[in-house]
Computed example of a mutant assay.
Amino acid sequence: MAQTVFIDGAAGTTGLEIADRLAGRSEFELIVLDDASRKSSAARADALQAADFAVLCLHDDAAREAVELAAGSKVRIIDASTAHRVAPGWVYGFPEIVGREAVASATRVSNPGCYSTGFIALVAPLVRAGLLPADWPYSCNAVSGYSGGGKALIARFEDDADIAWRGYALALGHKHVPEMQARCGLDLPPLFTPAVIPAHRGMVVEVPLMLAAMPGAAAPDRLREALAAFYADSPVVRVADATVPDELLLRRSNGPSDAMTLHVFANADGSQARLVAMLDNLGKGASGAAVQSLNLMAGLDEKVGLAL
């Protein structure tokens, strides 16, 4: 018998991409509200109360409201907003980091932020293994396709072809920073510099390391080996070998992908390194991650329905 799924906020970019990944899958049956009902609290409450699973593709306040509307029901929730990413009682929906069993058994799962996914994938295993210090002042530079900014930013980029680069969060208060710090076990919040480029999808997240100045930091080859071992059983995350390409490219023509590739680059004497994650901000950075968690919660293979 198919398990029912309600996507609250199904008309947004993340919701639409989740629905695409679930289309044609016999394991799930979508509960769909018509346009007249999808903003009705009463209709949403009925859907949440009836569903086996709900995925919240909403802004933070609406996500909190949805959790209240679901109170007392059997529904198991995946929240794609920022509202519960460091909240007590919520399992962080990054199976490779928190453990597949933790996600599979959870009733409340918070979907990671897109930038956070790249940063945490690179840093958390290395800090956990003692190969990078937890008390270092890390920085993170990242660029993303504009689709992660919602309908208003999508329209802005598509209507103004003159925008080549958009830097933002200039007051250093980006909403992903708390989860980046918490999930990596860092003493200090990372200095995060995000930007948006004129591509619909795609993301590069980089963590530069001055290894020579970092007490107890391991050599670049050891960092790469540790990441490769950590993700050895992951069908989603891969670690590139030591071969250094001439360049890394994000292409505007890239289609959906739920995979993520991690790189470790270094200078000749190993005193400096660049940790780089490449992913689809709408894939492992959003919708693909939600479907991966949904699969595990439903007792299925985590990679079913993903573009890998």
Rank of each mutant, 00 (worst) to 15 (best):
A266M: 00
L296G: 06
G288K: 06
D269F: 08
A290D: 07
L250W: 02
L248R: 13
S293C: 15
D280I: 05
A298K: 03
P245G: 03
A289G: 14
L250V: 13
G288C: 09
H263G: 01
R251H: 14
A277E: 01
V291M: 05
P256A: 15
Q272R: 13
G285W: 03
G285C: 04
G285R: 02
M278D: 00
P256E: 15
G285A: 03
M278R: 11
D301Q: 15
L282E: 07
L306A: 07
A290S: 12
R251W: 12
V244W: 04
G283H: 02
F265H: 11
E247M: 11
S253R: 12
H263R: 08
S271A: 12
G299I: 09
N267P: 04
S253M: 10
G270C: 08
D246H: 10
S287V: 01
D269K: 07
T243N: 10
N281D: 11
D301V: 13
Q272Y: 01
G305F: 05
L262G: 04
L308R: 11
N281A: 06
N267Y: 06
S271D: 07
L248Y: 15
S293A: 15
G255H: 14
A307E: 13
N267W: 07
R251K: 13
L306S: 10
M278E: 11
G288L: 07
L275A: 03
G288Y: 04
D246V: 00
R252S: 15
L282K: 07
G288D: 08
L248S: 05
R274M: 09
A290G: 08
L248D: 09
G283D: 01
L282N: 13
L306N: 08
T261D: 10
A259W: 07
T243C: 03
N267I: 03
P256S: 13
P256Q: 13
L275C: 01
A290H: 04
A286M: 01
K284M: 10
S287D: 03
E302W: 09
G270E: 09
V304I: 15
T261H: 05
D241A: 08
A268N: 09
G288F: 06
A277T: 02
D280A: 03
A259G: 14
D258S: 10
A259P: 07
E302Y: 04
A289P: 00
L279A: 08
L262A: 09
N281W: 00
K284Q: 01
A289C: 14
A266I: 00
L279T: 02
